[in-house]
Design a protein around this nucleic acid. Structure first.
Lengths: 120, 120
DNA sequence: GCACCATACCTTGCGGTGCAAAGTACGCGC
DNA sequence: GCGCGTACTTTGCACCGCAAGGTATGGTGC
C-alpha cells in the first residue's frame, strides 16, 4: 500500500466501506442502511445509498436477494461477499493512516510525526 | 453549521481545509504545497492543487500575489484571508465528529457511542 | 550561443461521487 | 376510494481528484 493507490481511494467516498461495515454485522436492506447512517450523524439520502449499493454489487463486494414474507413489504437484502470482506479489511488498515496524516496537518504544533527521535 | 451541511462538506474533499491549514503557518506557493502534501503521505498532484487554489481564491478563502526576486523564479504566493480562517476553524470542529462517526461504524464492538448511559 | 533539464504555473478532459427530486409500486387505515 | 407511509429506482446536476499535456523561464554544460 505504502505511497500510492490506497491514499487515492481514501479520498474518494468513505461511504462504501461504511456500508460494508454495516453489512458485516448482518444482512440489511436499503432504507435500513439509510436510517442507520442517519442515526450515526452521517447524512446519506436514498439517492446516495441505492446507487452505491448497485455499484458495490457490480464490484462483487455485496450480493442481494429479494425477501418476501407476509408480514413485511418485499425488501432487497444485501449481504457481504468475501471480496467485500477483503475490501473492508483493507479500508480498516488504511483509514487510521489517513486520519493521522490529516490530523498532523490540521494541528501544526502537535508534531505527532512519530519516527523522529530515532536517536536522542 | 452544526448538524446538517457540514457533514456533507466533509465527505467532499478534505484537501481544501488541509491547504488552508498549511497556509495558516505561512504564505506558500503552489508547488511548495504539492511537495508538502506529498511529504505527509497525502498524494496530491499539481492537477489537483492548482485548480483547488483557484477555487479557494474564488471563494475568498485565500488571496494571492506574484513574488519576484532575483534569486528565485517568479512565484505566486497564497495567503489566508479571514474568511479562510473561519472555514478552517469550522473544519477543525467538524473533523473530529466526522472521524468519530466513521470509527463508531467501523469498529462495531467499540460502542464508543457516548451519550447513552443516561440512565443505567 | 545553444541544447538540455528543472522549476513553476496553468488547462483540458475523463471518470467517479454525493445528492435532490421525481417516479413507481404496494399495503394499510378510515 | 383516498391518502399515507414504506421501499426501491432512476434521472440529472455539480463537484472533485487526477493524469496528461502545454507554456514560460532560468541555470548548466559545452
Amino acid at each position: 500500500m505504502a505511497t500510492g493507490p490506497a491514499a487515492s481511494q481514501l479520498r474518494k467516498g468513505v461511504l462504501g466501506p461504511l456500508v460494508l461495515a454495516l453489512l458485516e454485522e448482518r444482512e440489511r436492506y436499503g432504507l435500513e442502511i439509510v436510517r442507520e447512517l442517519s442515526t450515526r450523524d452521517l447524512v446519506a439520502s436514498e439517492g446516495t445509498v441505492y446507487p452505491l449499493l448497485t455499484r458495490l454489487q457490480d464490484a462483487g463486494a455485496v450480493e442481494s436477494e429479494w425477501v418476501v414474507n407476509e408480514r413485511d413489504r418485499p425488501r432487497r437484502f444485501y449481504r457481504l461477499t468475501s471480496t467485500g470482506r477483503a475490501e473492508l479489511a483493507a479500508f480498516r488498515t488504511d483509514w487510521p493512516a489517513f486520519t493521522r496524516a490529516v490530523d498532523s496537518i490540521l494541528t501544526p504544533g502537535d508534531d505527532s510525526d512519530q519516527q523522529r527521535e530515532v536517536h536522542p
